[in-house]
Amino acid sequence: MRPLRNPVIQAVLAWLLAGWMRFCFATIRWTHQNRGVAEAVWDAGGGVLCAFWHSRIGLSPACWPLDRAQPAKALISLSPDGQFIARAVALQGIPAVRGSSANKDKADRAKGGSQALRDGLRQLKVGALAITPDGPRGPAREMAEGLPLLARLSKTPVLFIGLSCSPAIRLSSWDRALLPLPFARGAIVWDVAHYPEGAELTDVALAWTERLNTVEAAADAITGLERI
């Protein structure tokens, strides 16, 4: 039995991870670039999609000030690992919308994806929805069509968020995920877009992949983190 399938172990580890992340975020020296585009979206209120690559999910709560921005939820997969991440993120004030297109069973995949789409659109009527558009299984830094589809249907702005921290723990997962270390140097870089009228989902996914890579590379350049 995998440890993360045990609800007690999962809850304890999620609590420890959330506490570690809060401590790190409080001690990291943060640099913000182009934050004005995010502040304009926060001031406008309403729905907004927030996108960052899956490898930076461990840094993501640092980019969303709960006392300043819209209330947010995170789209997190239905897998046991996704439940673990959902618990840790929820402990930092960002509850989850559960769903994914990567479940093994085709029927479950369709059911979970459809439910996540409905719940995501419902959330976008009142606040923010955070998405890792290459998750939960990759390929890393390749955007699927889920984010552009949500943007087209909801007509909400999309914030591309580049997150970086150095030094950091780099896991051996498929995406080489980062976990923060205390007293490190951190960076958050912003960009914003709307779904282009009449554009194809595939074309938008390719264009937005480049934009998300650009802000992440800019954040890594600030912190000095080696890109893989």
Rank of each mutant, 00 (worst) to 15 (best):
I9P: 04
A11Y: 06
A11G: 10
L13T: 14
A14Y: 01
A14C: 13
W15E: 09
L17S: 08
M21W: 05
F25R: 03
T27R: 12
I28A: 14
H32Q: 08
R35A: 03
V41R: 10
A44P: 15
G46F: 09
V48M: 04
C50Q: 01
F52T: 12
F52Q: 07
L59T: 00
L66V: 04
K73H: 08
I85Y: 03
A88K: 02
Q92N: 11
Q92I: 09
Q92Y: 02
P95V: 09
P95T: 05
A96Q: 06
R98F: 07
R98M: 13
S100D: 11
K104D: 08
K104H: 07
D105A: 09
A107W: 08
D108V: 14
K111H: 12
Q115S: 01
R118L: 12
R118T: 11
R122D: 12
V126Q: 14
A128E: 14
T132E: 08
D134C: 09
D134P: 05
G138R: 01
R141L: 05
L147W: 00
R152T: 09
P157D: 05
G162L: 06
L163K: 06
L171A: 13
W174P: 03
P182I: 04
G186W: 00
A187Y: 00
I188P: 00
H194Q: 09
E197K: 14
R211M: 04
D220T: 10
A221H: 08
I222R: 04
E226A: 05
R227I: 13
